[in-house]
Amino acid sequence: MSSERIPDDVERTVQTKTRDARLGSGVDDRFNSRLRQAVGSSPFILTKFDKFMNWVRGSSMFMLQFGIACCSLEMIHALMIKHDVDRFGAGVPRASPRQADLIIVPGTIVSKFAPRMKRVYDQMPEPKFVVGMGSCTISGGPFQEGYNVVKGAEEVIPVDIHVPGCPPRPEALIYGIAKLQERVANGESSPVVVKPYELEQFGDLHRDEVIDQLADRIDEDSLAMRYNWGDSP
């Protein structure tokens, strides 16, 4: 509608110049790259949306800045220079669980902390992934026989990847994260289902409609962890 319209020929000249400069020539030309050769001449890639989303999730993981015990030291080292897990697209620590999609559980979980950790996990938005770091999150590790130690993170939250070690080296943690990313990108990750701790009071019943109904009656404000130490592995 504008009366100050630039004549067609002028515009085309300018654009062509820029484009020529960008295009360049030869195999490194970004519009004629190996990727292009691989997928054909079409500028579109046809894929399933789920697959695309999985790829996105796996390639950009925001992890929670969550330190518990000794392993958190090695986690810090995995984040900082030399190891720098950011190179693999998983190294932006978020202080708030509401912005994170990966929680690394770095250390021993004790009775007083377990409900808090559950609360932190609950605050993370879906989809969320858990890497258990170190022996303590597998079984309680060296402290397994302690009167106060929860025998592994899976007693509280589901864990996708276990990284063994006491503590695992930063390289091991990075390998664990990379494995998780690979699984997520391939759509393989399905969180292990553990019985929610709120339902512990119903013993070994399988989760069914009755239990779901009963679960509704639980007062969320006075949630309790019930530690049946005798039954723990």
Binding site: K112, Y147, D221, S222, L223, A224, M225, R226, W229
Partner: peptide, 14 residues
């Protein structure tokens, strides 16, 4: 005389 296998309840209160 402490029994380590005894169940414990830890409330999560405000």
């Amino acid at each position: 005389d402490y029994n380590q296998d005894k169940p414990q309840v830890v409330a999560y209160e405000a």
